[in-house]
Simulated assay, not measured.
Amino acid sequence: MNFARDPTYHRRIRTVTDDQHLPERSRLVQQQLSDAGVAARVRELPDAARTAEEAASALGCEVGAIASSLLFLADEQPLLVMTSGRHRVDTDLLAANVGAREVRMASAKQVRAVTGQAIGGVAPVGHPSPVRTVIDEALSDYSTIWVAAGTPHTVVPLDLNQLMMLTGGEKVQVATD
């Protein structure tokens, strides 16, 4: 879908006010937001946005304001990295900054097992159990950060402080633009 060529696309992004109309995974995310006192509401996109570029195009924001949720294994332990869509994670730098000997990308099966969510829709919350999380310091450049909300069709706007509070995550450098 070329979001930029559809002038009605942005009007079709729907803020969901009735949680029962959300997919199950997104309901879990919305519940955790509400429980934490975060007023942000999940928004439903007319089409899936599985990449930062697709999400930025759909939302009409800079790609750097998209917080891609990437699951890595740091010394075989799950590590969720909320990274700015403007760059790729440097695994050597990440390993050094989280005190790990080795960091590698988790498989799709591991992502689903750890987060309960599919690649392209992994939210920072709503997982079966807490996941150690780090947040790309580059996200500090944006007042609004868009994160997946449990499916490739759902997103939620947060600010950096909300993201850090929700995840218990610490800011780290994950790339050298």
Score class of each variant (00 low, 15 high):
M1C: 07
N2Q: 09
F3W: 13
D6L: 07
I13G: 12
R14H: 07
D19H: 10
E24Y: 13
E24S: 05
S26C: 12
L28E: 14
Q31M: 09
Q32P: 11
G37T: 07
A39W: 01
E44Q: 14
D47R: 04
R50E: 14
E53H: 14
E53F: 13
E54G: 08
A56T: 08
A58V: 10
A58P: 12
E62L: 11
V63I: 15
A67Q: 05
S68Q: 10
L70P: 00
L71T: 06
F72M: 11
D75P: 09
D75Q: 03
E76M: 02
Q77F: 00
P78W: 01
P78R: 01
M82Y: 00
R86K: 10
R86P: 00
H87R: 01
R88F: 01
D92Y: 11
D92F: 10
L94P: 02
A95N: 03
G99P: 06
A100D: 04
E102V: 13
E102L: 13
S107H: 04
A108E: 12
A108C: 00
Q110E: 15
V111G: 10
V111C: 09
V111R: 06
A113K: 14
V114F: 13
T115M: 03
T115P: 13
G116T: 06
A118S: 15
I119C: 11
G120A: 09
G121M: 06
V122L: 10
V122F: 11
V122E: 03
P124C: 04
G126T: 08
G126A: 15
H127R: 05
H127Q: 06
S129V: 12
V134I: 05
A138I: 01
Y142P: 07
W146G: 02
A149L: 03
P152R: 02
L158Y: 01
D159S: 02
L160I: 08
N161Q: 09
N161S: 13
Q162C: 06
L163P: 01
L163W: 03
M165F: 11
M165S: 14
K171F: 04
K171P: 08
V172F: 12
Q173K: 15
Q173A: 15
D177W: 06
